[in-house]
Computed example of a mutant assay.
Amino acid sequence: MLGLYMNARNFVSTRLSREEKGATAVEYGIMVALIAVVIIVAVNLIGGSLSDAFDGVACELDKTGATAAGKTC
């Protein structure tokens, strides 16, 4: 009887530990997805102002007024 109890307990504990590993993997996947969304939003929000800043620097460096993108200063 004790052997049957020990086998059942080991089986249940093994199953529970496997499910926790799966849940942890899902949690990490959700975190990675959220981080990717934050990065994409930040790049979209900051991208325009960074482009303008680099264009300004390019105009200052290139005194002829033409930039690589064909814009004039």
Rank of each mutant, 00 (worst) to 15 (best):
M1G: 14
V12S: 13
R18K: 09
T72Q: 13
I30A: 10
I46P: 02
I35Q: 10
V32S: 06
G22V: 04
A25F: 00
C73R: 02
A68V: 14
L16V: 07
E20M: 13
Y28F: 07
L16H: 01
K21G: 11
A58T: 06
A8V: 13
K63H: 07
A53P: 01
E27D: 13
A53V: 11
G3C: 14
L2E: 07
T14P: 00
A8L: 12
M1R: 08
G56I: 01
I40C: 09
V41T: 12
N10Q: 08
V12E: 12
V26L: 06
T64Q: 06
R18A: 10
C59W: 01
N44G: 14
V12P: 00
M6I: 13
G29H: 02
M31D: 04
D52Y: 05
I35H: 08
K63Y: 05
T67G: 08
L61W: 02
V12H: 08
A8I: 10
L50W: 03
R9G: 02
V12Q: 12
L4S: 10
V37H: 04
S17Y: 00
Y28C: 11
L34P: 00
N10K: 10
V41D: 05
E27M: 11
N7S: 15
A58E: 07
S13A: 05
S51D: 13
S13H: 05
V43H: 06
R15C: 12
V32L: 11
A53F: 13
R18M: 11
A8N: 09
I35P: 00
L2D: 06
L61H: 02
T24N: 02
T24K: 04
G3D: 15
S49I: 14
N10V: 09
V38S: 04
E20P: 00
V38Y: 02
E27R: 13
S51M: 15
I40N: 11
E60F: 10
A68Q: 07
T67C: 04
L34R: 05
K21E: 03
D52T: 14
T14Y: 07
F11I: 11
V38C: 04
Y28E: 13
L61F: 03
T67Y: 01
T14A: 15
G22D: 05
A69N: 10
F54S: 04
G65Y: 05
V32D: 08
M6A: 13
